[in-house]
Amino acid sequence: MPSHKTGYLYALVAFTIFAAQDGISKHLGTFYPPVFVAMLRYWAFAVFVLLMAARSSGGIRGAVMANRPWLQISRGVLLAVQIVFSIFTFAVVGLAHSHSILASAPLIVAALSVPLLGEHVGWRRWCAIFVGFIGVLVILKPDGEGFDNSLLITFVAVFMLALYSVLTRLGSKSDSAMTSFFYTGVAGAAALTLVGPFYWVSIAPQDWGWMLALCITGMSGHYCLIKA
């Protein structure tokens, strides 16, 4: 199968997994601090990344040796913060409303690909991006009741997600998928560990299953996205 078609399949699988993951995130974010939820998820993610790196051809040392380490660290931390924002907005704004806005991420990716990746975006695609953003405004239904300030967090989350996707593509030009995967898990876990313990709470027994499902979907989804 041509490489671009394989990439499309990986992307389809990744975003299907992310859809299920967001539903789980909304449930957990309603009852627990988003930073705490994201931290536990990233701890499991980091363990999984280390195990995969150890089994790879170059081992953990090979995965760490990034050609552009600051780029890899930045995208790992960026995604961790984005996930915290997303969990918060799922719980506060609502899953359907949040996803309506998050669906504009590909539009931002296309716009950012010009200055950051040097890709060409023709006038037809720019027109599609413009129409897409009009659609986002329609979803928000601006009226006399005023603007919901909580939606600003959703806008920040969608921009961060788009920027992460572009930086992932940029990192793939110089580093392997294993290196990108390693920094996604380890850098993100390190960043959240600096903050998450301050929000530590006890998890109800019935929610441990949901936490496990969140960890599994997070690991598999981001690996598929990096492969894409």
Score class of each variant (00 low, 15 high):
58 G>I: 06
52 M>I: 13
197 P>T: 06
151 L>K: 06
63 A>T: 12
157 A>N: 12
122 G>V: 00
116 L>W: 03
162 A>T: 05
216 I>Y: 01
100 S>E: 11
206 Q>L: 00
101 I>A: 03
207 D>G: 00
183 Y>R: 12
226 I>D: 06
146 G>C: 07
135 G>D: 00
198 F>K: 04
198 F>G: 14
209 G>E: 08
55 R>A: 14
219 M>Y: 12
196 G>T: 09
105 A>W: 00
95 L>I: 13
135 G>F: 04
58 G>R: 03
78 L>I: 02
79 L>T: 13
171 G>V: 03
152 L>R: 00
4 H>Y: 12
120 H>P: 02
163 L>T: 13
41 R>D: 03
139 I>G: 02
106 P>M: 08
196 G>R: 09
133 F>G: 01
90 F>Y: 15
101 I>T: 04
123 W>Q: 13
187 A>M: 07
221 G>Q: 06
141 K>A: 05
135 G>H: 05
152 L>Y: 13
54 A>E: 08
179 T>Y: 05
44 A>H: 01
171 G>C: 04
76 G>Q: 05
226 I>N: 09
131 V>S: 06
166 V>E: 03
61 R>A: 12
15 F>I: 11
107 L>A: 03
209 G>W: 15
95 L>N: 07
82 Q>D: 00
111 A>F: 00
131 V>Q: 01
116 L>P: 02
129 I>K: 03
223 Y>F: 15
185 G>V: 10
139 I>L: 13
192 L>D: 04
20 A>G: 14
14 A>T: 12
85 F>K: 05
131 V>G: 10
166 V>D: 09
227 K>G: 09
111 A>D: 10
83 I>G: 13
122 G>T: 03
119 E>S: 02
137 L>C: 11
181 F>K: 07
76 G>Y: 00
131 V>R: 05
23 G>H: 04
123 W>F: 06
161 L>W: 14
83 I>C: 10
162 A>S: 15
102 L>H: 11
228 A>K: 09
22 D>T: 07
156 V>K: 02
96 A>E: 01
189 A>K: 04
226 I>P: 14
109 V>K: 02
163 L>V: 11
107 L>F: 08
89 T>F: 00
149 N>P: 03
101 I>F: 06
102 L>C: 08
132 G>R: 05
164 Y>H: 15
105 A>V: 09
